[in-house]
């Protein structure tokens, strides 16, 4: 196991060392100490590494992640796991806004609450939040799943494409073109699997499903006067 203390080593040096593992993986397990809210920790990984960050991380932690398993033992700033392609990113505390933004794949687990715009423009990632999510979550979400075990803020799923949203608690309001949908057996099976992969013990039958009404997919001539 390799331990890197960020009060002694720069972010650039840490990230370079992690990137060097792509060509030849010599060290799979990494521990990062004293992150102190610095930005861009463990960004752009592309190897089956396991990275544990002890403390609070700043912006864009584990952004663009591929294959790696990154755990933040603390809170994460804006844009954690943004544009993730694969792998697993787990935040043991809270995540700030835009968690998992535009992410294409992999699994993001937030064990605390996520702030505003969680999963904004997500494109295939699975996001499981144990607590609440803030307003405008899943805005323009295109593909993947968002699971919220707590409550969701205003305008959930506004202008949604094909993300499936599962919420256990209350939804303050639904965004434009987002509606509650029937929870069928295949959805229960999918949600059960998501919760299991996230390691979160919740009863899937307690959740409601939300999705796109697909009313914004095509231009409606009735709305022509609005332009």
């Amino acid at each position: 196991m390799k331990t890197v203390n960020l009060s002694e080593v720069s972010i650039r040096e840490l990230n370079q060392a992690l990137h060097d593992q792509k060509a030849q993986c010599t060290e799979e397990t990494w521990t990062v100490l004293e992150p102190k809210g610095q930005h861009n920790i463990a960004c752009g990984l592309d190897q089956t590494l396991s990275v544990d960050i002890h403390g609070h991380a700043g912006y864009y932690c584990a952004g663009m992640n591929q294959k790696a398993n990154v755990t933040i033992h603390g809170n994460a700033g804006q844009g954690v796991a943004e544009n993730m392609m694969s792998g697993v990113v787990r935040v043991k505390g809270d995540a700030s806004q835009s968690a998992g933004a535009t992410a294409h794949g992999g699994l993001l687990v937030v064990e605390g609450n996520a702030g505003a715009r969680c999963g904004i423009s997500m494109k295939g990632v699975d996001i499981v939040v144990k607590g609440d999510v803030g307003h405008m979550s899943c805005f323009m979400g295109q593909a993947g799943n968002l699971v919220v075990c707590g409550d969701a803020g205003d305008a959930l799923g506004d202008s949604l494409y094909e993300v499936k949203i599962y919420v256990k608690g209350s939804v303050k309001s639904l965004g434009a073109d987002c509606i509650e949908k029937e929870m069928r057996s295949e959805h229960l099976a999918e949600l059960t699997d998501l919760l299991k992969r996230a390691g979160i013990d919740e009863d899937p039958t307690q959740f409601k499903r939300y999705g796109s009404a697909r009313g914004l997919y095509n231009f409606k001539v009735d709305n022509a006067s609005a332009y």
């Binding site: 809210g37 610095q38 700043g58």
Partner: peptide, 25 residues
Amino acid sequence: IACKPAVMAETDDYVAMASEYQALS
């Protein structure tokens, strides 16, 4: 809309706020 960042911290001794956690560390 809350697009400008903020983070807060509280202990028995103080309350602190900052745009980014780095300033609280």
